[in-house]
Computed example of a mutant assay.
Amino acid sequence: MTADETARIEQACARLIARYANLNDAGDWDAVAALYAPDGRMARPTAPDAWIVGRDAIRAAFLARPARITRHLCANIVVDVLDADTAVAESAVALFVADAPVRVGGFHDRLVRIGDHWLFAERRGYLTF
């Protein structure tokens, strides 16, 4: 794999992470769930060992939450390309919720290319404070 190919993958994966935050803040749960591979799984930062598996279950988990106004700020995104179709990433996140304390944590991601799209195979959140 060339340096340019690696850089394109890193950029696509970093964009996926940022897009996830923006769609989450917009409350577009269909679009958020579509960012996962069909059998993808996620664990929220508040429950890092409670896996939610599959797009339908992920969408349902977001719909089950009370509506809230949020802003996720992602930083320190580092993507490691494993091969042409897989990568891992780590990112930091600060979560601002209206009328609540700021939460700081991050995500460990496993990303896969399916067709022309990079998707989350696994997204595991954690809280630092």
Results as ranks from 00 to 15, higher is better:
residue 106 G to T: 02
residue 87 A to Q: 11
residue 91 S to E: 12
residue 114 I to G: 12
residue 79 V to F: 03
residue 84 A to C: 04
residue 54 G to L: 09
residue 113 R to P: 00
residue 114 I to A: 14
residue 87 A to E: 09
residue 86 T to F: 03
residue 112 V to W: 06
residue 112 V to N: 04
residue 58 I to K: 12
residue 97 V to F: 03
residue 105 G to A: 13
residue 109 D to V: 01
residue 106 G to M: 06
residue 78 V to N: 11
residue 97 V to K: 10
residue 53 V to L: 15
residue 104 V to Y: 10
residue 90 E to F: 10
residue 103 R to F: 08
residue 94 A to D: 09
residue 59 R to Q: 05
residue 56 D to H: 11
residue 74 C to I: 09
residue 110 R to M: 01
residue 75 A to M: 07
residue 115 G to K: 15
residue 104 V to F: 14
residue 79 V to D: 06
residue 114 I to C: 12
residue 83 D to A: 15
residue 101 P to G: 06
residue 63 L to R: 15
residue 67 A to V: 01
residue 64 A to Y: 05
residue 63 L to G: 10
residue 86 T to Q: 12
residue 85 D to L: 08
residue 87 A to R: 12
residue 111 L to D: 10
residue 106 G to E: 07
residue 113 R to T: 00
residue 93 V to N: 04
residue 79 V to M: 10
residue 60 A to H: 12
residue 90 E to G: 15
residue 63 L to S: 13
residue 85 D to A: 12
residue 100 A to K: 10
residue 65 R to A: 11
residue 77 I to E: 11
residue 96 F to K: 05
residue 82 L to P: 00
residue 70 T to C: 00
residue 100 A to T: 01
residue 68 R to W: 08
residue 54 G to A: 09
residue 55 R to W: 04
residue 101 P to T: 10
residue 94 A to I: 13
residue 74 C to H: 09
residue 56 D to K: 11
residue 68 R to P: 02
residue 59 R to C: 04
residue 76 N to P: 05
residue 75 A to R: 09
residue 81 V to E: 11
residue 53 V to I: 15
residue 73 L to T: 13
residue 82 L to R: 15
residue 86 T to A: 14
residue 84 A to W: 00
residue 75 A to L: 08
residue 70 T to K: 00
residue 65 R to M: 15
residue 89 A to M: 06
residue 65 R to G: 04
residue 98 A to E: 15
residue 87 A to D: 08
residue 99 D to Y: 06
residue 89 A to N: 07
residue 93 V to E: 10
residue 110 R to W: 01
residue 97 V to E: 15
residue 87 A to P: 01
residue 59 R to N: 04
residue 72 H to D: 01
residue 71 R to T: 02
residue 116 D to M: 04
residue 66 P to Y: 00
residue 109 D to F: 05
residue 79 V to G: 09
residue 65 R to L: 12
residue 79 V to W: 07
residue 75 A to W: 05
